[in-house]
Measured scan of single mutants.
Amino acid sequence: MIINNLKLIREKKKISQSELAALLEVSRQTINGIEKNKYNPSLQLALKIAYYLNTPLEDIFQ
């Protein structure tokens, strides 16, 4: 099972779900679904998340 630290990292960087969704060009519901482990992001989306949060991919999804 993948450990998902997206919410923790996003909140630590003081970025809202809506702000991150806008940067990634996805819906806020997509971010919410990823954070609640209801949706697994594509590799492309996971890499974009890591880029915009300036955090290694391995720290977000373990």
Rank of each mutant, 00 (worst) to 15 (best):
K48Y: 04
S27V: 04
L57Q: 04
S16C: 04
I60K: 01
Q17W: 04
S16Y: 03
K36P: 02
I9R: 02
L6Y: 00
L45M: 07
I15A: 02
T30V: 15
L47W: 07
Y39V: 13
L47E: 08
N5S: 07
N37W: 09
P56D: 07
E25A: 13
E35T: 03
M1P: 12
N5K: 07
Y52L: 13
M1V: 12
S27N: 08
Y39L: 13
P56Y: 05
I2V: 14
I15N: 01
E25Y: 10
I49N: 00
I31F: 03
Q62C: 12
L53Q: 00
Q29V: 09
R28Y: 09
I9S: 03
I9H: 06
L53N: 00
A46M: 15
S27P: 14
E19K: 13
N32F: 07
K12C: 11
I49H: 00
N4R: 04
I2K: 12
T30W: 11
S16K: 08
E19N: 08
Q44R: 13
L6S: 01
E58L: 10
P56T: 07
A21D: 00
S18D: 13
N40K: 15
N32E: 15
K12R: 13
K13F: 14
K12Y: 10
Q44N: 11
R10N: 01
K12I: 10
A22D: 11
Y52C: 08
L8N: 12
Q17I: 13
R10D: 01
L23E: 06
I49T: 01
I34F: 05
E19P: 01
N4S: 05
P41Y: 05
I15C: 07
S42Q: 05
A21F: 03
S16D: 04
R10K: 01
Q17L: 11
P56S: 08
L6T: 02
M1Y: 13
T55D: 02
E35S: 02
E58K: 10
Q44D: 12
T30Q: 07
A22K: 14
R10A: 03
R10L: 06
A21Q: 02
S18Q: 12
M1R: 10
R28P: 14
K48M: 08
S27R: 08
N32C: 08
S18H: 10
L8I: 15
L53I: 03
I34M: 05
A46D: 00
S42Y: 05
F61T: 02
I34G: 01
I49A: 03
P41G: 03
I9E: 04
I9D: 00
Q62W: 13
I49D: 00
D59P: 02
N32A: 15
A46S: 07
Q44I: 11
I34T: 02
A50L: 03
L47R: 11
K7T: 07
N5W: 09
E19L: 08
L6E: 00
P41C: 10
I31V: 11
S18K: 13
L57D: 02
A46K: 15
R28S: 11
E11A: 08
K7G: 06
V26I: 10
L43I: 11
I34A: 01
R10Q: 02
N54R: 09
T55K: 05
K7N: 04
P56Q: 07
Q29K: 13
P56V: 05
L20S: 00
Y52S: 05
L47M: 13
I60R: 01
I15H: 03
E58N: 11
V26H: 01
I15L: 13
N4H: 05
E35I: 03
R10F: 04
I2E: 07
E35D: 02
N40E: 13
L57S: 03
S42K: 06
S16A: 06
E58M: 08
K12M: 14
K7D: 02
M1D: 08
I49V: 04
L20R: 01
E19S: 09
I34L: 08
P41K: 01
L47N: 08
K36I: 10
L23A: 15
I2S: 10
Y52I: 14
K13Y: 12
Q44V: 11
S42N: 08
S18F: 09
E11N: 09
S16G: 06
F61M: 04
M1I: 14
A21T: 03
A21I: 03
N32T: 09
K38P: 04
A21R: 02
A46I: 06
E35A: 02
P41L: 09
F61C: 04
A22Y: 08
N40G: 12
L43M: 13
P41M: 06
L45I: 07
N32M: 14
Q44T: 12
L20F: 07
R28T: 14
E11R: 10
P56C: 07
I15V: 09
K7Y: 07
A21C: 04
Y39P: 01
K48G: 05
Y51F: 12
I49P: 00
E11D: 08
T55C: 08
N54D: 14
L57V: 13
G33V: 09
T55I: 07
E58P: 08
K36E: 15
G33Y: 14
K7C: 07
E19R: 14
L23M: 14
E35Q: 00
S42A: 06
L45G: 00
Q17H: 04
Q17T: 08
I34V: 04
L53T: 03
F61R: 02
R10T: 01
Q17R: 09
I2L: 10
A50Q: 04
K13I: 07
K14Q: 13
